[in-house]
Simulated scan of single mutants.
Amino acid sequence: MAEIPSTPYDGNVRAALVPTVADVNAPTAAELTSGIDISCYLTGDGLAITVDQQTISDERLCSTSTFEKRGRKTHSVDVTYVDNTNSVAHAAFNEAREALDEGAVHYLVTRRNLPYETAFEAAQVVRVYPVEAGFPAEVPGEANSVTRTTSKLFVTGDPGIDVAVAAGV
């Protein structure tokens, strides 16, 4: 069997909160760079995106088996980020906490498998989630840690999944 290469996760993920995207299935690089890059605010395990797909039961009179079909999907996003509220870093380095006040509306854009520093460009594959921020909850403090906050981001519409960044503005 051929050895299959892999891409490290650390340092190869970018996450941004964008104010507007005309088409979640064809976002432009200009749209994606118009927001707040929250990648360096998120903790190492602080970007939790999941999908749960329901099952449609398909029973038939002629069979002793119950078949299944794909049902509705529920996309969920939870983020955990560094919170510098009231610290000496507050004024310059608290964008994630300020942007994620309860009720704030954004598009969360994620990109994997390119170095974090690489700018959004046409043809890159991204995911675009229209979201509304939930209540920012303080993460309980612990020794040898930093101050963190967690927020549920409610997905409010159909996301663009694995879509190419469009050329143009």
Rank of each mutant, 00 (worst) to 15 (best):
D101T: 09
H106S: 13
P140A: 06
R14G: 12
K69P: 01
A133I: 08
Y129A: 05
T118D: 12
V109K: 11
A91S: 09
S57E: 02
H75A: 04
E132S: 11
A166T: 13
T66R: 10
A91W: 06
H90C: 10
D58Q: 10
V131P: 04
E121M: 14
D52R: 10
K73V: 03
D45K: 11
V131C: 11
S65M: 08
Q54S: 15
R148L: 14
P8Y: 11
F93L: 05
E121Q: 15
N25H: 13
V131L: 09
V79D: 00
A2Q: 04
Y9E: 07
D58K: 12
E98M: 13
N84I: 00
V165K: 14
G160T: 08
R148I: 06
G168E: 06
V82T: 01
D162E: 15
T149W: 02
Q54N: 14
R111I: 14
G44Q: 01
Y107L: 07
D52K: 10
T150K: 11
D58F: 00
P140Q: 11
E31C: 13
A26I: 00
V79A: 06
N12R: 10
I56H: 05
K69Y: 04
V109M: 07
H106E: 07
C40W: 06
V128C: 05
A143P: 02
D45P: 07
P130Y: 01
T20K: 15
D37S: 03
R14F: 10
V126C: 12
F67R: 12
D101W: 00
N94Q: 09
D158K: 09
V18M: 08
A123K: 14
E3D: 14
G134F: 06
F67V: 00
S151I: 03
A143S: 09
D23W: 08
A143T: 11
V139L: 01
F120D: 13
E132I: 11
G157A: 08
R60G: 04
E117N: 13
I38Q: 02
V105K: 12
T20Q: 12
V125W: 01
S57P: 08
G168M: 11
A15I: 00
P8V: 15
R127Q: 14
H106F: 04
P136A: 00
K73G: 10
